Simulated scan of single mutants.
Amino acid sequence: MTAILAVLATVVGGFLGGVGRWALSRRPGGRWGTWGANVIACVVMGAVVGTREPLALLWGTGVAGALSTWSTLARELGQNVRQRRWRTVVGYATATLLAGLAGIWLGGLLV
């Protein structure tokens, strides 16, 4: 694979993932948008593991990389820690971890 094709695949995937992340930040928005983006990114990653390089760069590095938003997750968890909302912190972190693992597994089944 040429370097140009690798960059192009990553750029196109990044654009698509970025648009998806933006859409999820609008609807449903908030924690549900962040959670959904991260879970969908995990499904995508589970599906592309072991695929050929152009597809892995497009879908894995590009789409899933731009769609997932672990920095927003950290900010949302941090805000809840500062507000001492311990049930929310534990519930949100646990739901994200378990759904992400399930998403990777599900994505692997799709291929």
Rank of each mutant, 00 (worst) to 15 (best):
M1G: 14
M1K: 05
M1H: 05
A6P: 04
A6W: 11
T10D: 07
V12Y: 09
G13R: 01
G13K: 02
L16F: 10
L16D: 01
G17E: 12
G17Q: 12
G18I: 06
V19G: 12
G20H: 13
R21Y: 09
L24A: 08
R26S: 08
R27E: 09
G29L: 14
G29F: 11
G30M: 04
W35E: 04
W35S: 07
I40Y: 06
A41K: 00
A41Q: 05
C42D: 14
C42S: 15
V43H: 08
M45Q: 12
G46A: 15
G46I: 11
V48P: 04
E53M: 14
P54Q: 08
L55M: 12
A56I: 03
A56N: 05
L57S: 15
G60I: 10
V63W: 05
V63H: 11
L67I: 12
L67S: 01
T69E: 00
S71C: 09
T72D: 00
L73G: 01
A74F: 00
R75G: 07
R75C: 05
E76K: 01
L77T: 11
G78Q: 09
Q79D: 13
R82D: 05
R84A: 15
R85L: 14
W86R: 01
W86Y: 12
W86K: 05
Y92H: 04
Y92M: 03
T94R: 06
T94P: 08
T96E: 02
L97W: 06
L98K: 05
A102F: 06
A102C: 03
I104P: 00
I104K: 01
I104Y: 10
I104T: 10
I104S: 00
W105T: 04
G107P: 00
G107S: 08
G108H: 02
L109M: 14
L110C: 10
L110W: 08
